[in-house]
């Protein structure tokens, strides 16, 4: 017997009509059911930020969110941040400044930092440090991630 219940929401600006059991975690729903694998599974317990997506524009840990609790809402993943063949200014800066090494934490950082720059185009360094405080990077020591975010902040008008 299927325990699936209908689930309608918007993902990357597209309406999605699906179904899932009530205990389905948003991260699993995105990766397994919708095959949006750009969102990464790092720790599955909310302690690394690799799975960060936006729910109604707000960076959210998809590993600690029930899919059915975002019913009717708008979810944005790394795949939906820009048209598929284009990079955002922040994505370009991440590449140019060496802010991505192994790349596994990168989608989460991009989601977190893109929301910051959207809401505060010119964040201070302490503000940046605070906002990325829930995203873990084991490669970069954060230095170049911060530089990339600051570079975009400098360029934006």
């Amino acid at each position: 017997m299927s325990r699936d219940r209908p689930l309608e929401l918007t993902v990357n600006d597209q309406p999605v009509e699906s179904a899932a059991p009530e205990e389905r975690i948003l991260l699993d729903f995105l990766r397994e059911d919708l095959e949006l694998v750009g969102t990464k599974r790092g720790c599955d317990l909310g302690t690394c930020g690799c799975c960060t997506v936006w729910v109604d524009g707000r960076p959210t840990l998809s590993c600690l969110t029930l899919a059915h609790l975002v019913k009717g809402r708008s979810v944005t993943t790394i795949e939906g941040l820009a048209p598929p063949t284009r990079l955002t200014a922040l994505q370009r800066a991440f590449v140019e400044h060496g802010a991505t090494q192994c790349g596994f934490c990168t989608p989460g950082f991009i989601m977190t930092a893109s929301a910051l720059l959207r809401d505060h185009p010119h964040p201070s360094r302490p503000q940046i440090l605070r906002v990325i405080g829930g995203n873990l990077c084991r490669c970069t020591g954060y230095t170049k991630i911060i530089e990339a975010i600051e570079a975009v902040a400098r360029e934006s008008t």
Partner: peptide, 18 residues
């Protein structure tokens, strides 16, 4: 800059679990 950088920043780089 890393040659695969654009794939990593867009979530398009493919890891084993993907």
């Amino acid at each position: 800059p890393y040659v695969e950088g654009p794939l990593k920043v867009t979530g398009r780089a493919e890891y084993t679990d993907d």
